[in-house]
Amino acid sequence: MSGALGKDLLGLEHLSGDQIRLILDTAEPFKEVSERAIKKVPALRGKTIVNLFFEASTRTRISFEFAEKRLSADTVNVAASGSSVVKGETLVDTARNLEAMRIDMVVMRHGSSGAAKFLADRIVSSVINAGDGKHEHPTQGLLDLLTIRDHRPIAGTKVCIVGDVLHSRVARSNIWGLLKLGAEVAVCGPASLLPLGIEALGVQVFRRVEEAIAWADVINVLRLQLERMQTGYIPSVREYYRVFGVTMERLERAPRDLLIMHPGPMNRGVEIDSRVADGPHSVILNQVTNGVAVRMAVLYLLAGGKPELAEAAKGASDR
């Protein structure tokens, strides 16, 4: 184990509230680095990071890549299509081969829940989960927390996650992170898209989006994965929008100003009204900006060196 977070970041479920706060606090000064004319600091100079994406991703991959480059790490992108994965190589063999080239970290997106832990248990390098199946997407959870915290204290804030909670790793990471920092959490969506027994986590369930909007301070709108329609989870996209869409008309009846979040990519007119997405309460682009800062913080905290040397080094002053 190295540093305050350990070797890997696999999810928020097993982090403490203090560890999550440490990441958010560390992200604050990294926001400023991205505002500089020269958006680069040498903190991770000489570190090699592989971005291993077995699923399509634009935002997350680019966000990680910016974070890595702004910390001066050397990065390599591996997309599953066009790699030896299509030739039948297993995940572990792929990773071991990368590790044989002396890398320091792997950022991985994978379609199977638990893939990040599977990998982390088998290689020496740090693993950062960039989304594994329906399990977790911890850096998305962290950037959502940071974005809420930019506007209000998280403890006591009422956050409702609206949409396809069942298939959403973003929802899971958000729920763990929010509960650990003392927020009140609810979910809202068609019964077919809510996990059974989710109340056991301490999460409230709303069947009607109007009730959720009346209750919440923050609405986090999830993307409706359109492929769900074919598999019969919802009758039609149009009906979904009519019943669960976060629309301007619904928000106008809210008793207080809401913060509107969306992890992207958005389906305008499916889960969210365009006027809401571009409206005054939307912090969707702030989320994207915060994503780079939070990922810089995670990379920086995981890159920590050899704790056994740290004690000796503390004797020598910093000056």
């Binding site: 540093g3 604050e28 000064p29 903190a43 920086y300 890159a303």
Partner: peptide
Amino acid sequence: LYRDDLEVVGPRPLVGPT
């Protein structure tokens, strides 16, 4: 973030504003 001993002391959790 410009220190030469990140490898030794590990990352400092709190970086102040610049």
